[in-house]
Design a protein around this nucleic acid. Structure first.
Length: 329
DNA sequence: AACTGGTCCAACCGCTGCTTG
DNA sequence: CCAAGCAGCGGTTGGACCAGT
């Protein structure tokens, strides 16, 4: 007979999250992963509903999130993807792994909508208009189906050849994203909030029994979390975070700093790839997500930014869905 | 300095499809 | 098979912030 009720709405806290709450949530997910959101409020003592916890994690605390201004590159991708997929922000976000669907949605509503409106007002033929008009002949459901088939195919390809990514050639990047060609811009609000959290995390990591380096595989989630964050940015002797800075925090909670740092060297990229395998624990899901979109994004960029291409996205997707999926299935 | 209007974004709301017992 | 609950998604909102007057 169903499951026991989720979180009753009595005594559930709402509104902005405090750094303390963030730490509690992060530390819990470090130990237990993101599998059971329902258990999070009860096990952590957070007066939040499970939904709120999940949202906080996926939109804010999750590793690998890039914050701040959108680059031209990202902007173009969003515009094209929105024209292709509609308001399927989650699907669009899957092509921009560093951005959350909420972020993209907000950016679309606050910036791009107006921008496009303005451009259309200028009555000037542009790429966005072209993409939209090209996508119209196809039914929405059909485009969705094509995209979903395409994504499923990519996921399968990834699953079958994960090792290739880890031992890829020096030219290959851990993430498809040439987003890294663009400038990193951090918002001051997030920076300040991460500073607070990082400061609090210092205490937490000191107390945490999980920062041990015994190499035990009892919890891969813990190990990966610690290895990638504390292990690279802290003193091994005391286990504390070395820098109470936004960068320090980003690196604590994941791979963000190396991932979003556009000035990173190829060597750093390789380092990221080497450490960023699906076997690395709690962030496995995130890493998979990132890996999964590697090929599609690279291909996507071909048509997104190839002005000479007259075929457009539909041609690509049609090929993928009608041609290659036949082989797949 | 105070007010006003606009912008931005984190968080909430409500719906839907899937999962579970 | 069914009902209840969960997780995820897209739409909306509230409040902080900023620029202009």
């Amino acid at each position: 007979m169903g499951r026991p009720p989720c979180c009753d709405k009595i005594g559930v806290k709402k509104g902005p999250w405090t750094p303390e709450e963030d730490i509690i949530l992060v530390s819990y997910i470090q130990e237990h992963g993101t599998g059971n959101w329902r258990a999070v409020p009860t096990n952590t003592g957070l007066l939040r509903c499970s939904k709120s916890c999940r949202l906080r994690w996926t939109n804010y605390l999750r590793p690998g999130i890039k914050r701040g201004n959108f680059t031209d590159h990202e902007e173009k991708m969003i515009i094209h993807l929105q024209a292709l997929l509609g308001n399927r922000w989650a699907a669009i976000a899957s092509y921009l792994p560093q951005r959350t669907d909420n972020d993209i949605k907000n950016y679309w509503n606050t910036h791009l909508k107006k921008k496009l409106k303005k451009r259309q007002g200028d009555d000037e033929p542009n790429q966005e208009g072209r993409s939209v008009s090209q996508s119209i002949p196809k039914g929405q459901w059909e485009r969705r189906l094509q995209t979903d088939i395409h994504m499923a195919k990519q996921a399968l390809c990834e699953a079958l050849s994960l090792d290739k990514w880890n031992t890829s050639s020096p030219d290959s990047k851990p993430f498809p994203i040439n987003l890294s060609e663009t400038k990193p811009i951090q918002t001051s609000t997030y920076a300040s909030s991460t500073e607070n959290i990082a400061r609090l995390l210092q205490n937490w990591t000191k107390k945490s029994p999980n920062s041990s380096q015994d190499g035990s595989s009892e919890s891969t989630t813990q190990n990966s979390f610690n290895n990638r964050s504390i292990g690279t940015s802290s003193s091994p002797s005391d286990g504390t975070i070395s820098a109470a800075t936004p960068e320090g925090f980003d690196s604590f909670i994941g791979f963000n700093s190396s991932n979003s740092d556009v000035s990173q060297s190829e060597g750093e990229l390789k380092f990221t790839a080497a450490n960023f395998t699906p076997e690395t624990g709690i962030l496995q899901e995130e890493s998979k997500t990132n890996l999964d979109i590697q090929m599609p994004l690279t291909l996507l960029e071909n048509w997104l930014f190839d002005d000479a291409s007259a075929e457009g996205p539909e041609g690509y997707l049609m090929d993928m869905s009608l041609g290659e999926t036949a082989d797949l299935f």
